[in-house]
Design a protein around this nucleic acid. Structure first.
Length: 512
RNA sequence: GCCGCGUUGGUCAAGGGGUUAAGACGCCUCCCUUUCACGGAGGAAUCACGGGUUCGAAUCCCGUACGUGGUACCA
């Protein structure tokens, strides 16, 4: 194992885990595995006020379902634990203090009200959101503006304060992003971000840098929404540990709404009728349920494949990849710069491909679960296997197995009589009565024999097979869908087939 | 507003100075299938705009437009 490659996935447990998050995790995982390194899950739960109970376990379950289990995580530990930021709390303060000592940070005593007041006071049309920056900090209550005596007094009175980074006012901060190349910012346009909050918790900014250093992270991939705060992190690395120790960054493109523009959000899923979470997620605070790809009937392999190629491809025409193939072929320089709109039709296409390609053996258990959830008892596995083979190419989502195969296990609940009745006549009634007699006497019961006998009777009665196949299908299936009728009859067996014909005959006959 | 990032069909995308500008999803037509699918053949549809550089630009440079992200004691 190449221990020098250590990639971390650091989601926040405040908003659950949606598409963009899973994809970030996936790319982290693929990169780590591709280089024989380690994939680390670290939870960024420094915001206790918005912390959502259960979210951390949920994230780990989703990753497990996707087959991308981390080498180090809150659940399984590792050499650099704990993997929960809230449990690392005592370690952060010293770094913030160190920055104050070296002149790269300062204490700020401004209350939330004072900050609000400042923003209102300096807000203009040209500057709708005034920042706590190198200009405004001169006007605020902090260790830069307060006299030594005043500062000592406030400290001894234990007045709450935060530690802010002191942004240089005229520097160009440059770093190389693995996807975007050289990216640079002017320090003067950046604000003095809070590093340590009044409650002693670090903000994300301090925590990522310290954690990445302590966990010896070599590569840090995250969503593009983090790009604007990258300069803070670069500076922190420079001041604390040296930029030469800094991990390599990659800022992943966003996954966008299918309609209009903007980052894909949970709301969009509800609105447009598709999942944005890997698995069902019930917010314990609101009780709201967001359906997941898993519950919606996606195979994890299809989900992972779909996600991987949403923003990456290997340069060839290939679209279908197993996790192993992805691991082998993945490279950061093939990741796109621009965001991709999510397309549920395409996502379903992937699932369809995986269902079609799946072996009946592998599908046995999942299909059984789908059917049993709908109240269908599966006794024998042999017919089920045949059924799966017959219907899987018409199933896009796992739930489709119910519609496509329920009639094998129970008589159709509804019958599309409209498709039959208008053209129903005495000749057809006679034909099916003869068919029943013939089938009753038949000693063999396979699809070929059934078809042969059927057509023979058709010929004898001087009828057209096309006009009788459809009614036969409706009798057995209830509608105009499903595999070949004779295949269906073969699986149904003699008794059930004859029973369904008689039953239908009774209904059709009574309408004449 | 300011700062950052981006822009090839409706969507995902290949292509990185000379191509008839791949392929996939979706849509349409036809074939196969006496159902629905699968499969097969075909079709409509694209380099955001304006300037350069060049014999030649989707490709390199500069603008503009548009989109998007950030602008919290959230991550």
């Amino acid at each position: 194992m190449n221990t020098s490659v250590r990639v971390r996935f650091a989601p926040s447990p405040t908003g659950g885990l949606h598409l963009g998050g899973v994809r970030t995790a996936l790319y982290n995982y693929l990169f780590a595995r591709h280089h024989g390194g380690r994939f680390i899950l670290r939870v960024e739960d420094t915001d206790q006020t918005r912390f959502v109970p259960g979210a951390e376990d949920y994230i780990q379950e989703c990753l497990k379902w996707c087959g991308i289990e981390p080498d180090e995580s809150p659940a399984h530990g590792g050499d650099y634990g704990p993997y929960r930021q809230s449990e690392r709390k005592p370690g952060y303060r010293q770094y913030a203090e160190q920055l104050v000592k070296s002149g790269h940070a300062y204490y700020a005593f401004d209350t939330p009200e004072e900050l609000e007041e400042m923003r209102n006071k300096f807000r203009t049309e040209a500057n709708p959101s005034p920042q706590y920056n190198h200009i405004l900090r001169e006007k605020m209550r902090n260790s830069l503006t307060l006299g030594d005596d005043e500062l000592r007094r406030m400290m001894s009175e234990e007045l709450p304060y935060v530690i802010r980074i002191k942004m240089p006012d005229n520097e160009t901060i440059t770093f190389t992003d693995m996807i975007r190349g050289e990216v640079s910012f002017h320090s003067g346009t950046q604000d003095d971000k809070v590093l340590l909050k009044a409650d002693g918790m670090p903000t994300y900014h301090l925590a990522v840098v310290v954690d990445d250093h302590q966990m010896k992270i070599s590569h840090a991939f995250r969503g593009e929404e983090w790009l604007p705060s990258a300069p803070v992190h670069i500076l922190l690395w420079r001041y604390l540990f040296g930029e030469d120790q800094m991990p390599q960054w990659a800022h992943l493109p966003l996954i966008l709404k299918p309609d209009g523009n903007g980052k894909l959000s949970k709301r969009d899923g509800d609105r447009l009728g598709f999942p944005v979470f890997a698995m069902d997620w019930r917010d314990p605070k609101t009780g709201e349920l967001a359906t997941g790809f898993k519950e919606r009937g996606f195979l994890p392999e299809a989900f992972v494949n779909m996600l991987a190629v949403l923003g990456w491809n290997d340069g060839s025409e290939q679209e279908l990849f197993t996790l192993e193939q992805l691991t082998e072929k993945f490279s950061m320089d093939k990741v796109h710069k621009g965001g991709a709109k999510f397309n549920f039709d395409k996502a379903k296409w992937f699932n369809h491909e995986y269902i079609k390609a799946a072996s009946p053996d592998a599908m046995m258990q999942p299909v059984k679960e789908v059917l049993e959830a709908k109240g269908i008892k599966i006794e024998a596995t042999a017919p089920l296997k045949k059924i799966i083979d017959l219907v899987k190419e018409r199933c896009v989502l796992m739930a489709d197995f119910y519609e496509q195969s329920a009639f094998f296990f129970q008589p159709p609940a509804t019958m599309d009589t409209e498709a039959v009745l208008p053209k129903w006549n005495e000749a057809k009634q006679v034909f099916f009565s003869e068919l029943v007699r013939n089938y009753e006497l038949s000693s063999v019961w396979d699809s070929n024999t059934l078809e042969h006998n059927f057509k023979e009777i058709v010929a004898v009665n001087k009828l057209k097979p096309g006009e009788l196949m459809l009614p036969f299908r409706i009798m057995l299936v209830g509608g105009k869908f499903g595999p070949g009728v004779f295949d269906i009859a073969a699986i149904l067996g003699k008794n059930e087939t004859i029973h369904r014909i008689r039953h239908a005959l009774h209904i059709f006959g009574s309408h004449n």
